[in-house]
Design a protein around this nucleic acid. Structure first.
Lengths: 207, 207
DNA sequence: GCGGGGGCTGTACTCATGTACAGGATTCTG
DNA sequence: CAGAATCCTGTACATGAGTACAGCCCCCGC
């Protein structure tokens, strides 16, 4: 097992551990994912994981940092905010859902950075869209950004149920759920203002 | 089973355990919630919980059944599907999010009934709305029902992050996020068809 | 050549959790 | 009032988790 002497051809053990952790965290969640499984999936021993990262929480933060860097790189390129959001969800969607969703593990402080970054992307996307005119501005743009993140991540948050619903294929589930979501984004759902009224927005709207 | 002789003033221990389990599962999730914490919150010993329900999974199923019964009761009353969805989310929103969300615990089979019931309510709501004309029909009504459940549960799925985002108050977070969601339901978000095009629906739409 | 250092491993320890078991308290019945 | 069934508890056990420690093997510079 000459995994070590391959510096260029294969990934280094440290990189393999991070990749494995990103995968196991995405599949099982932070709490349910075990150091032993992460190590096994990376083809190393459990002790090496703690040797490189010290603790499970530190490994998680390394994974988070990897995602944050991915977002920053896409932003530095002249990618549009909408495309950044699409790409980060396409690559890290399940991971983000596990970390941002209920029970992301380790109390409430962890992964707050991830949510902030996504929020920043959504804010930029909304500002961009409002300037270009292809996006309807909201009475509360900050909440609109949060809602945009919410609805974008939501399919991954319930991916297991949607997969079962779609007959066992996760890709098919995402594709199928994207249809009514696209319709929602384009036309809305209701034909009157009763929901706005229920939210107490009739006064502002009618003016 | 003579549950009747219980003193009318207080709940029986069994009922207190179920209520405590519903609360702890909602707060910590299935895996993170411990039998000891559930028992302590109910004011009983851990052994009594296993005595009444046998296993943790059985206790969970009892909680699920409680929610299912709540939905059935609301449906039997002449409540509109939309109101049923509102009420069940208002009462069991956090619990449903924990159980339906990623990492609901115990593999993938559990709580499938809950999702089915919500889906049925959403289907009825869509059929009702389409008949009344206050709701835009989708090209894929079944997926539309799933999306409706998804977006309705989503705020509870990320309630922790939204609470932090809103400054620590969960109620305020839900209230604030409901504004752009109501706008989304009413007007949509975009002003053109690019999202429908991206979903490959332009042909169907243009026809 | 060789000594040292870092990547890497096997083993062990501590702790929390779900669950099983045997006994004590309480309440209903005859 | 007595007995018994039911409710309820304290204790203990097996398991799997994260983490710490001591040592091996390979590469690198003097």
């Amino acid at each position: 097992m000459s995994t070590a002497p391959a510096p260029a051809g294969d990934l280094t053990a440290r990189a393999r551990i991070i990749a494995s952790a990103l995968d196991r965290f995405a599949v099982h969640g932070y709490d349910a994912a075990t150091m032993r499984d992460i190590a096994a999936h990376a083809g190393v021993s459990t002790a090496l994981v703690t040797h490189h990262f010290g603790t499970k929480q530190a490994l998680r933060e390394e994974c988070d940092a990897r995602v944050v860097r991915f977002i920053a790189e896409k932003q530095d390129a002249s990618t549009s905010p909408a495309e950044v959001l699409n790409q980060v969800l396409g690559v890290f969607g399940p991971y983000l859902a596990r970390m941002l969703g209920a029970g992301g593990g380790s109390g409430g402080e962890a992964s707050a950075v991830l949510f902030d970054r996504l929020l920043a992307v959504a804010r930029a996307m909304i500002a961009d869209g409002a300037a270009s005119g292809w996006l309807r501005p909201s009475l509360d743009p900050e909440a609109q950004a949060a809602a945009l993140v919410l609805v974008s991540v939501a399919p991954f948050l319930m991916l297991d149920r949607l997969t079962a619903w779609a007959g066992g294929d996760a890709e098919e589930a995402l594709r199928r759920i994207s249809v009514p979501l696209a319709e929602l984004y384009t036309h809305g759902l209701t034909t009157d203002d009763r929901l706005l009224a229920a939210a107490g927005l009739t006064a502002e709207v009618s003016r």
